[in-house]
Amino acid sequence: MLRTTSLFLVLMAVWLLLSGHYTVLITSFGVASCLFSALIAYRMDVIDRESHPLHLWPRVIVYWGWLLVEIYKANIDVAKCVLFPKKYLRPSLFETKASQKTDLGKVIYANSITLTPGTVTVDLDGDVILVHALTKGGADGIKTGDMDQRVTRLMEES
């Protein structure tokens, strides 16, 4: 029930921010449609820990901030690699282990790897992730397991 309420609040916030029309009639239509959507989602039983991960909420902000800095660094790396390929281009394909227990954690980890340019998740099977890296630095960054540790810490206490 808590998750349904929060889904309704999120839908309502998005509706209010995107609409820009605040007459009584239009706003009541918006409230009605958001309620209807939340009700359908509740009856379909699609709101659970995976689809609406409320328990991650305060910690995920810190993780996003850290990820943004990583994305910045990785972009500089890839830009250098494009401009001077002879010096930096060392493509490699290697396997790494994901230490998260839940599927949601693994997906967050794999998507974080893909989101930082220079490393792309090619395959995710069980807890083995196949990664394609563009430069040696990017490959070493994944192999140290720093990002893996952070995602595990993000997921664990919940």
Partner: peptide, 14 residues
């Protein structure tokens, strides 16, 4: 192709 995916990802993110 795989190296080009990295270049495309650069436009998507930063």
């Amino acid at each position: 192709l795989y190296t080009r995916i990295h270049a495309g990802g650069m436009a998507d993110t930063l």
